Simulated assay, not measured.
Amino acid sequence: MTKDSKETQNEKFQRVARELGTDESEEAFDRVLKKVVKAPPPKDSKTPKKTD
Rank of each mutant, 00 (worst) to 15 (best):
T2I: 01
P41S: 12
E24P: 11
Q9P: 15
Q14A: 08
Q9S: 13
R18W: 01
D44G: 05
K43I: 15
S25K: 07
R15D: 00
K12L: 05
K49R: 13
N10L: 14
D30Q: 11
K34M: 14
L33F: 07
K34Y: 12
K50S: 14
K35S: 11
T22D: 08
K43Q: 14
M1R: 14
Q14V: 08
A39Y: 09
S5H: 05
V37R: 10
K35P: 02
K12V: 00
V36W: 07
E11Q: 12
K6V: 08
P48R: 11
E27G: 01
E11S: 10
K3R: 13
D23W: 02
S45C: 06
L33Q: 08
L20I: 05
E27M: 00
K43A: 13
K3I: 02
K46I: 06
P48Q: 10
K46A: 10
E19T: 15
Q9M: 15
E26C: 01
E27Q: 03
K35G: 06
Q9T: 13
R18H: 04
F29A: 07
E27P: 00
M1A: 14
A39E: 13
F13W: 04
T2D: 01
D30Y: 09
K12C: 01
D4K: 05
K49V: 13
T8H: 05
F29P: 02
K43C: 11
E7V: 11
P40Y: 03
T22N: 08
D30F: 09
D23S: 02
D23G: 04
N10I: 13
N10C: 05
E7A: 11
T47I: 15
E7T: 13
V16F: 13
G21V: 03
S45W: 06
V32Y: 08
S25I: 06
P41N: 11
V36E: 09
P40K: 12
K35E: 08
D23H: 02
T2R: 05
F29S: 02
V16R: 13
K34V: 08
V16L: 13
F29L: 12
D52R: 09
F13S: 06
K50I: 14
R15K: 00
F29C: 01
E19M: 09
N10F: 11
K46M: 08
D4Q: 04
T2K: 02
T51M: 10
P40V: 01
K50E: 15
G21Y: 05
K38Q: 05
E11Y: 03
R31Y: 07
E24V: 09
T8P: 00
Q9L: 15
F13P: 00
V16W: 15
T47N: 10
T22Q: 00
A39I: 07
D44P: 03
E7P: 06
P42R: 10
S5T: 07
D30W: 05
D4L: 03
D44F: 10
D4R: 02
P48W: 11
K49I: 09
K12W: 02
K46S: 14
D30T: 07
K50F: 15
K34H: 08
K12A: 00
V16C: 13
T47A: 12
S45L: 08
K49A: 15
E27W: 00
K38D: 06
K43F: 15
G21C: 04
K50V: 14
T51E: 12
P42S: 10
K46V: 04
S25G: 08
E19A: 14
